[in-house]
Design a protein around this nucleic acid. Structure first.
Lengths: 134, 134
DNA sequence: TCAATTACAGTAATAATTACTATTATTTAT
DNA sequence: ATAAATAATAGTAATTATTACTGTAATTGA
């Protein structure tokens, strides 16, 4: 019991998430999915995003600016957040195994994962602020 | 103009934050500070915590479970979050400089900082779950 | 000491998320 | 293929964290 039933809504949500690398919020996903599913409700989006996260088919990324972002790429990777435009980028760099070993060595308990976010300014926003001085 | 004026409330908040390593939320800080300052308002706590953060005298830590935590220790360090009790611990380990260099090498923009949170189960909660099988 | 200005308390508003409920869709067993 | 069982949905209300607003109080500089 409590078995998972298919739902068209969940499939559309999952497909949207797989097809973007923009790390959208629940609300953004809601707006996009509504184009193909006008009667979908925001609660359904949240519930399914949480389900997908529990099933390991999505990842939640918590940033300091309010809403949680979702990522359809579930293999471990790092992110960079532009503090100007708030966009979140995937970083194509190796996830450090040594850092997690170090953490295990100094934490009296179990560590099963870690998340790292880099903060900075993306190239697009750098261009914009340079323009101000031209 | 817009100069900073002294306030007893801010001092008490700052002192409370300096005297704990529990990474409290705004609401927790509010509850504690109220013992010495019964008429303080939650908005004042938030405003001053944000001020202290802007002045570099506190740090905001965003975790996946709702509220922002505050830390009076502003030197760079890592944290571990226990997914059982939600407590946040300071880790006494070196902050990697190489990881930020690596990130800079693969991000077309500027990176000025990073934050890492490890997820796991603290020793206290490990003890508790072991007890269940005894 | 007084005028200027910032901060405060108290309250209302906002934003993100979850909870609830009657209806609808999917699945399972006939 | 149909009906009963069950999970999912839409729509709405509630909750939680945080910020905004406003009239009063505290701090500061002359």
């Amino acid at each position: 019991m409590a078995s998972l039933k298919y739902s068209r809504q969940r499939e559309v949500i999952k497909n949207y998430l797989s097809g973007t690398n923009s790390h959208p919020t629940a609300d953004t996903i809601y707006m996009h999915v509504r184009e193909q599913f006008p009667r979908i409700s925001l609660g359904t989006v949240y519930r399914n995003l949480n389900l997908l996260t529990e099933m390991g088919e999505a990842i939640k990324i918590t940033t300091p600016d309010g809403a949680v972002r979702f990522d359809g790429v579930t293999s471990p990777h790092y992110h960079a957040l532009c503090t100007e435009c708030e966009r979140l980028f995937d970083l194509d760099m190796n996830v450090s195994e040594s850092i997690i070993e170090e953490a295990r060595a100094c934490f009296p308990g179990t560590i099963h994962s870690h998340s790292t976010i880099f903060y900075g300014v993306c190239s697009h926003c750098q261009g914009k602020s340079i323009d101000l001085y031209q």
